[in-house]
Design a protein around this nucleic acid. Sequence first.
DNA 1: ATGTCCCAATTTTTGGGA
Length: 297
Amino acid sequence: MRIATWNINSAKARQPRLIEWLDRASPDVVCLQETKLSDEAFLELFDEDLFRRGYRVAHHGDGRWNGVAILSRAGLEDVRRGLPGDPGFPGPEPRAISASCGGIRIWSLYVPNGRTVEDPHYAYKLAWLAALRDVVAELAPQGPVMTLGDFNIAPTDADVWDIAEFEGATHVTEAERAALGRLHDAGLLDLMRERWPDETVYTYWDYRQLCFPKNYGMRIDLTLATADVAARARAVWVDRAARKGTGTSDHAPVVVDLDEAPDGDIGPMVPPPSSRGSSARGSSSRAGAGTRRRAST
DNA sequence: ATGTCCCAATTTTTGGGA
């Protein structure tokens, strides 16, 4: 199952690039942020194109700002709009939506930007992240969970092109990183860093000052997941091609490929005959580990 | 020149947000 997240910075402005990307990348589940549309306007624009490609749609937006969505051709059950405990600014904003897709509770998140550390939006950002932590702490013990989206936090200094440029700025503060740390404490792993611990990886480049050509980027779009999901992650990457050319978002998609769940709907995995009763399925070899058959009875 | 883009409205220019 291929799962992606992409802050598209206006679904309306990005329509051709989004459709083109769906056809090229062929994701099964897509978490979108900053659609900047109402639910009605989003469906009006995309329903036909997405239906024809086999996607079902859950959108949560109110028009001008924010707006999140999940597109899925791997099931879309039990859709929940908003974040329980959302502090609001002052009222709730459409920054979270979740659904069960292919047995995973998937969240598409657009964390408040924070603006500056003195701005009330910064306190809002931290309060919003605290509410998210509580949701994760409740859900993570219950089954597979993924939280994907624009977190507006660079987890470490290595996740920005030049930390000196961020003196006193949001996205890199101790408090923001501590809030992210509490998501990890609640059971979420950073799939990109699990797979690529030391690579330079960016997901966002400002439109201004030729940031993309110079690779002045930030890794702020994160793919977090519980350990059961992390164990299935076969590949994790940033689709930089989607950031190139004209009419692009300032963010690139982050894509995760998952192996099938070992106890998925095809039935429980049992050892293949060749290794049954032997020690061949230990950590030294994965041969045969992908073989699945329906258990008898 | 912030080497930009997006939105809405007080719409053909401006202000706000990222």
